[in-house]
Amino acid sequence: MIEVVLYSGLSLIVFLFAYFIQHKYRLAILNPLLLTITILISLFAVFNISYQDYMQGAEYLNYLLEPAVVLLGYPLYKQIHLLKTQWQKISLICLFASLCALTVSTILAKLLGLETWLIASMVSMNITTAVAMSTSVELGGISSITAVMVLVGGLSGSIFGVMWLGFVGLIKIPNKDNLLTTPDNQQKVLGMAIGCASHALGTATIAKSFPVAAAYSSTALILCAIFTALIAPIYVPFLLTL
């Protein structure tokens, strides 16, 4: 019982501290989950605490993983008007984006000589954490590696996504001092790109400056999660046999 209070409480305190830091400095790199993992792992290394010791007290938090996925039905419900009017086009884009993520990650990881279980842990990195973890486990991967890969996908898109899209000429932001004036068409492109690649983390990052983009982004992240969960168990083993 004391372990539950100690380790679950410690996790909560560190997370709230990380949230406060992110809220204060508003930098995508200061993602609360990333900061919490970094602080906790550093603390455990210093005090010589094993993961097994930690999980004796924190494993009960894992029971909340499945409800967390169910809760994503709320943003889906909020964006349902987008799906009603443009569902075919948005679905097609998300389907191709999911196929692209699975193909590029599997083939590249295979070419680099990474082991099958590691590839299985990585391929679902461009979708939201909860679904990525269950997809990874279904493929024979390890969920903690998946969680970190999801952060890599989320953070890289959050920090460099807008810059990259401007660099390759796919979006134009006319007034960089007032991002809210960015035309809706540009925001649609940005939102779909960030939602497909950088899930909730990317969506949260662009939401304040690009509200139209955020609506498209949250729709895309849900659809990509569904497509990846559906396709990956069949498509990834097929790619691995090539």
Partner: peptide, 29 residues
């Protein structure tokens, strides 16, 4: 290094493809 290479290459490939497709299908709609 290899894991990060896979992560970044995949993410930017998806960003580029999704943005290009959105420009083709969604812009002006």
């Amino acid at each position: 290094g290899k894991i990060l290479t896979v992560g970044l290459t995949t993410t930017f490939s998806v960003i580029t493809l999704a943005a290009w497709l959105s420009q083709k299908f969604l812009v002006n709609v």
